[in-house]
Structures are given as C-alpha cells and as structure tokens.
Design a binder for these strands. Structure first.
Length: 600
DNA sequence: GCCGTTTTCGGCCCGACTGTTTTCAGTCG
C-alpha cells in the first residue's frame, strides 16, 4: 500500500495523542505528541531510516521507543496502525479537523461528539448555527460564538505565510509597538526570529513597567481585527491581514528568558527546561530559578520552612545558556537538529554573518524578464554593498521570458565588457560578470552550445520544465548537467515555489555526491518563495564539503534585499562563511569555478 | 509510552487567559 511520509506519520501520532486524551489515558498523549515532534524534526524520511537501520534506527529518534517504533513500522507498510484504528473505532471523529478550530481541544471534541454527534467540521458548524452548543453544560452563548468565529477564520486563513512576503508588515507592527511610550524594548520572536522560510503567526515580546497600558495601545492599533484573548501580560489577536499576533509583556529582568521562550522552537525550549530540571532548577519565561529554603520563626517557637525561588539567570539569553552549561545558540539553529549537543561540546558552527556576502551570481535584466537594465542592476548591487554580480538572463528554451540564444548572449557579453570599462572610470566599484541561467532540457543536455558557454564568466544551469519526472530520471538529468565542464553551478535545485509548486523529486544524497565529484556549486536561492535549497540539504552540503553560493535571483533593483533571506537560510543549514563562495573576493571566488575564463 | 550524569521505576515543561463556574478545567503557545 502507501508508504507514509514524515508529516503523515507525525499527524497520525498527534491524532492518536488526542484520541488517548479523550479516553482519559494519562501520559500517553504527551508521549505521542513528543514522538510527533521528534519525527517532524528529522532531516531524513522515517522510511529511509527504517530501510537503512531497521527498528533500531526508528528507536533512536527522540521520543520514539519500542511501542511507537512498531506503530511507525506499521504506518510505513499500511499508512495506519492497529492501535490507532482501535481508538478511532471507539471515537469515529475527525479529531484533527475539529481541533484546528481555535479554542477546540480534545475534551471539547469528546463532549461535542457524545452530546451532539459532531464528527466533522461541517457538523460542528451546523450545530453551532442551530444554537445547540450553548445549551450544553459548561458551554454558553459565548463559546458558541467563538466556535463559529474560529470556523470562519479557519476558512479564510491560507495557512503559513512566506517569511519574505510577510516580513515588511511584521516589522511595521514591531516598530509600532516599540514606539509606544511605555515600551522600553520590543522585538519579534517566534519563527520570524528563527527566520523559518514560512511563518504561522507573529510573536512580539515587549518590556514595560506598565503592561496594562501597552495592551490598551496594542488593541487600539488599526490592524487589529479581532481579539481572541487579552490579559495583563498576554494578548492574542487576529490582524486585518489574516495573521494572528501574540503580544507578551515582561519586566526587564525577564527579557532574556522570555525572548528565549517565545523564540522557540518548542522542542528546543522543552529540552532546555529538562536540562534545568536535571540541575534541580526551574526554567520558565521569567527566568531560571533555584529553590532556596528559608527558615521562618513562627509564634510558637517552631520554625517553619518556606521555599523561595531565586532567579539565577534570565535577563539575557546569553546568561541563560551559559548557566545551563551551553554556549549561546543562534535563533536560526534552535530546531533540535543537534544544536544542544553541539553547544554543550562547544562545536557549534561559526555561522555566516548577515554582512558577509560580496557578490551575487544570479541577476536578471531587461534583456529577458527582468525590469531593469544591466547598468541599473549593477548600480543597485553596488548600493547594496556588493563588489561583483553576474548577469544571468534566461536562455532560449524559455521563450516566454524572451530567452537568449547564442548570438544574443554574445551581444550581451560585449555590452557587459563595455560597461566594465566604463565603470572603471566612475565611483561605482563593481565588477559585472557575463553569465547565463542556462536551461536544462528533459534529458539533461543544455540549450546553449558549449563553445559559447566557454566564453561566459559564470554559467548557472536550472530546471524550468518537466517537473514531474520520476526521482531516478530527474536525478540522472541533473547529474548530466553537472557533468558539463562549463556548468559552474545549479540554480534553485529543486524548483519548489512555497505554497505553489512542489519540489521536483531528487535523490539528494546522490546529487550531493555528484556535486562534490564534479566540483559543481549549489545555489541557495534567496528569493523568498524559493528558499531553495532547504536548510536540511544545506546541512548535508556542509557535511559533504560541497560549496554553495547565495543568490538573490533579482529581477528588479529592489530584489537585492532578498539576499538576507538567503543568508538566513544558510544559517539555518549550519553554513559557515567558508561554505559559501560569494563571501570571497572576486578573484578568490573565480578560482573555485570549473573553468576560469581568463577575463579576470 | 518514553527515558535515565540522581533512576530500568517512577517520574513526565510551565504559565496565561477564558468561560462557566463558585474553585477550576480546558486550551494555547
């Protein structure tokens, strides 16, 4: 039958957790939840792990023991497992679908099913509209209205947003909060701070001595569309743009602990708390605490014992990690991909910095589908702090973009050379390289002849069609392109467009081996919807010693700003400066390409 | 059901907010 993917396994485990919770079983729900988190954090498919290392491999996954390993094995073979089916038979309800409604959890699902036979989201909506829910004990008109609103929101929200698209608005909101007179400090935490390629909501942390007033000002912002909850220290709202935003206010002595807590990831936080417990301490969003026993004299001369918690860290994140015996862990690494172990052993990578790029090797112009001329792009790149760029317009197979043939490429090359001579005598100190984004045909051949490729400074090859080939065919196709002695790098390897188009199927291990063997560079495409290659592949490249570049894929002068998202992506993949070739000076960079053309 | 630099048994992350209740369970992050 079907073999389950990690996300299918994780959601089945989550559903099992909910079913156990409804059954009033203790501790199992948390165990299944934890196992789901462990599966989600994997950088390899569970199916692969099982094929390679069997049951033992599965049991090595954090949160997975003998029992759940058996369930996973069953899921890999049949998509479901016996215990799940047994539970589901008892409560034949679409638990996950119902729990997706804000404010609805397992207990509520159980009650709704028992009393009103609610099994699906549709049933729930009907029951609420018919006014049946308010009549249940422990429910009222308010709960019913909240459920209806939750269903509405669920219908509208398109799930997670692409970071690069949402970030400008998020930063505007952050600035608004920072400018409240009572706010001493405000910062966006959560997945935005971890720079995940997509984000689910916005977590803002603020320091203030007057939280009440801060909350009032926040609720009065024009972008607040609905208030889910609002208290002294925590407010949760829906914004007019459809995103949810969470504002927390803490005192300054708790800023580091709160920042750490609200940055996540959740699994990372739980691991830190467990470390604290092992040391006999307690970690929460207000700080790291040590219990101190105080002797109090009472009136009848018997002494009474009282426990007082003393804060031992929490004003800064650095403090917190240090006290726990760890070196500071950058937010982009807090995904439980081995960062805690590495921090303990002081073997964390020294991540590439946000100002480390000196070049950009994928830039489009108005010769094809870009908005600006070569010179305009060069000037914008210079303004963005770059020392060199490669002009890489599309080649002819992409007729829709006005793709270039050999003749047009040679003409463009001449123009670039002329521009470089002209630039030498101006204030712009930028070097423009002649390149191309050459199209990889279905069979792995290229649509520009080798003699012309040989004349270019930089050749990037990319897939723009036949996205549905089998894994084996697709892998072979790309390896053939990498074997071309003129192809310096592969642009946006997997072709994914987040929320729009799936990645092509590839044997990534084999691709990385081929890149290493042929000396081909893999691009980290910084265009927010691409973020291609993804973090776990970057980590594999780092481990394999495959070099990468970070490119903006700019189609307009404003697009050089994308580079920071590419750097974030590289950092999430544990990349150091030395792994990314365009942190080098131009002459050093060119030495790493397959054929240096001598134009340097 | 998972896990072990206190443990192979006996623990299991922690606090805020809501709604419907009279002291708290459920939900969320």
């Amino acid at each position: 039958m079907k073999h389950s993917t990690n996300s299918e396994i994780a959601s089945r485990l989550r559903e099992t957790a909910a079913l156990y919770e409804m059954d009033d079983v203790a501790f199992k729900p948390r165990a299944y939840e934890k196992a789901a988190l462990g599966i989600e954090a994997l950088d390899e498919e569970a199916g692969e792990i099982f094929r390679a290392r069997g049951r033992e491999g599965l049991e090595a996954i954090p949160g997975v023991g003998r029992g759940i390993a058996e369930h996973i094995e069953e899921m890999l073979a049949h998509g479901v497992f016996n215990e799940y089916e047994r539970l589901k038979k008892k409560v034949p309800v679409e638990v996950l679908e119902l729990m997706a409604v804000e404010g609805v959890g397992p207990r509520m699902v159980k009650m709704l099913w028992q009393k009103l036979k609610v099994r699906t989201l549709r049933d729930l909506e009907h029951a609420a509209r018919a006014g049946k829910i308010r009549k249940l004990s422990h429910f009222g008109a308010k709960s019913e209205a909240n459920i209806l609103r939750g269903i509405e929101f669920l219908k509208q929200s398109g799930g997670r947003r692409v970071l690069g698209v949402a970030l400008p608005e998020i930063e505007r909101l952050e600035r608004s909060v920072r400018e409240f007179p009572e706010v001493d400090e405000a910062v966006v935490a959560g997945s935005v701070r971890r720079r995940k390629e997509t984000i689910g909501d916005i977590d803002i942390l603020a320091v203030s001595k007057n939280p009440k007033r801060v909350m009032e000002r926040f609720l009065a912002l024009p972008e607040v569309a609905h208030v889910y909850a609002s208290g002294e220290t925590k407010t949760l709202v829906r914004l007019t743009n459809g995103l949810d935003a969470d504002l927390r206010v803490v005192p300054s002595e708790s800023f580091g602990a709160a920042l750490n807590y609200f940055t996540g990831s959740k699994a990372h936080n739980v691991a830190l708390r467990e470390m604290a417990i092992k040391k006999g301490w307690k970690l929460n969003e207000y700080g790291l605490y040590k219990a101190q026993i105080l002797k109090l004299k009472s009136q009848n001369h018997n002494s009474k014992l009282k426990i007082k918690n003393i804060q031992i860290a929490g004003k800064t994140e650095e403090d917190l990690y240090r006290k726990l015996g760890l070196v500071y862990i950058e937010p982009e690494l807090r995904e439980m991909m081995g960062e805690i172990e590495a921090a303990r052993n002081n073997t964390l990578p020294k991540l590439i910095g946000y100002g480390d790029l000196r070049g950009d090797l994928q830039v489009q112009t108005d010769w094809t589908d870009g908005d600006n001329s070569i010179e305009e792009m060069a000037a914008a790149a210079r303004k963005a702090g770059l020392e060199y760029i490669a002009i890489t317009d599309h080649t002819r197979s992409l007729a829709m973009t006005g793709g270039m043939d050999e003749k047009k490429l040679l003409r463009q090359m001449a123009e670039i050379h002329a521009l470089n001579s002209k630039i030498q005598n101006t204030k712009y100190k930028i070097r423009v390289l002649a390149g191309a984004e050459v199209n990889i045909r279905k069979d792995g051949s290229l649509d520009i002849v080798d003699e012309v490729l040989a004349k270019l400074d930089v050749v990037g090859a990319a897939v723009h069609s036949h996205f549905k080939l089998s894994r084996a065919e697709q892998t072979k196709r790309l390896i053939r392109a990498m074997e071309n002695p003129h192809v310096d790098m592969i642009f946006h390897l997997t072709g994914r467009l987040i929320n729009k188009r799936e990645a092509i199927e590839l044997d990534i291990e084999e691709i990385i081996r081929a890149a290493k063997r042929t000396g081909t560079v893999l691009e980290i495409n910084a265009s927010p919807e691409r973020a291609d290659i993804k973090d776990e592949y970057i980590k594999k490249c780092v481990e394999a010693g495959v070099k990468m570049v970070i490119d903006s894929d700019a189609h307009a002068i404003s697009h050089f700003a994308f580079l920071s998202f590419g750097i974030a992506q590289a950092r999430r993949g544990w990349a150091e400066k030395k792994n990314i070739l365009n942190t080098l000076s131009l002459s050093q960079f060119l030495k790493h390409l397959k054929n240096t053309t001598g134009s340097e």
